[in-house]
Design a protein around this nucleic acid. Structure first.
Lengths: 153, 153
DNA sequence: GCCTTGGGTTCAGAAAGTGAACGCAAGACT
DNA sequence: AGTCTTGCGTTCACTTTCTGAACCCAAGGC
């Protein structure tokens, strides 16, 4: 199974948003990453927990490995040698993306269930994503930002 | 054109990440939002700047309107009445998601071009996304987080 | 009345996604 | 040794979605 044609075209744009979008703009990729951050590593566990078809899971894990987000490596179970997929440094750095999704989802789409309970391991506080100006330290939103080198597409 | 079947299933999960993923886990949706944040409002301008097919653009804008991320409204051009699509408050609050993608993209995927230049309107500083513990104020990464109510799927 | 423009909808063919069935290597069982 | 199970896929036939090109239609202009 090949990567989608249009994804490749989007990925070629010289744009800091289009390139990640070409990889991450996919429902399965995002929930696979969520599971990876939840500690899932084995093919079977991804497949069962997500209800994704094997062929598609195989394709998506392959894309993530190729992109450098996951690393596939053999490891010794108590019983035998298996493979597992682990987040690389590059993959771990996607955490803010997932947290941004979660924060927005909790706010606007989670009316019928309690929000995710994720805590700082050290102190039990709640992680919050802040968009802050690195110069003046003010918190910012979309309206406070100005695009100087814009709009590549 | 109907929304993809599996998207609906993912959207039904009681999960703060799966729900936004069902809407945003789509290449076109993400670049459409980028353009919206870049100030694009009209159907034609989205279409030309993205090279997306009209039918698909129509479908995606419709999804975003239905989700409450965009609002469609008529307005008076100098010449005549047109429609435009504008970000709602809910849509503007997606800014951190786009910034998270951009920050990651700049770091790992933008080796062949200069990163996007986005500045704080007031002081010219650069916006940075920080994941911080709201209790102790420490900056956090994936490894410092602990999932207490996990793994809905 | 006819033309242009914006914002679509409607095709038919191409690509991607789907679940079920099959492949295959490494240990374990007998 | 031969068979069984488990993990991790690939292949297949079928369905759904995407694609670009062609068409539609209302509001203004000529």
């Amino acid at each position: 199974m090949l990567a989608p044609m249009r994804a490749a075209e989007i990925a070629e744009q010289r744009c800091s948003i289009a390139r990640p979008a070409a990889l991450l703009g996919d429902r399965w990729i995002l929930v696979i990453l969520r599971q990876a951050f939840n500690g899932i590593k084995r093919f079977e566990d991804f497949q069962e927990s997500l209800g994704i078809s094997r062929s598609l899971l195989s394709d998506r894990l392959g894309r993530l490995v190729e992109a450098g987000v996951l690393r596939r490596e053999p490891y010794k179970d108590s019983v035998r040698t298996r493979d597992r997929y682990r987040l690389t440094e590059m993959g771990l750095d996607l955490y803010p993306v997932l947290m941004a999704l979660r924060q927005w989802g909790d706010r606007y789409l989670a009316n019928d269930f309690p929000p995710a309970d994720i805590r700082h391991r050290d102190c039990g506080g709640e992680p919050t994503l802040e968009l802050r100006c690195s110069k003046c330290g003010e918190e910012m939103g979309a309206r406070d930002a100005e695009v100087r080198s814009p709009i590549p597409a």
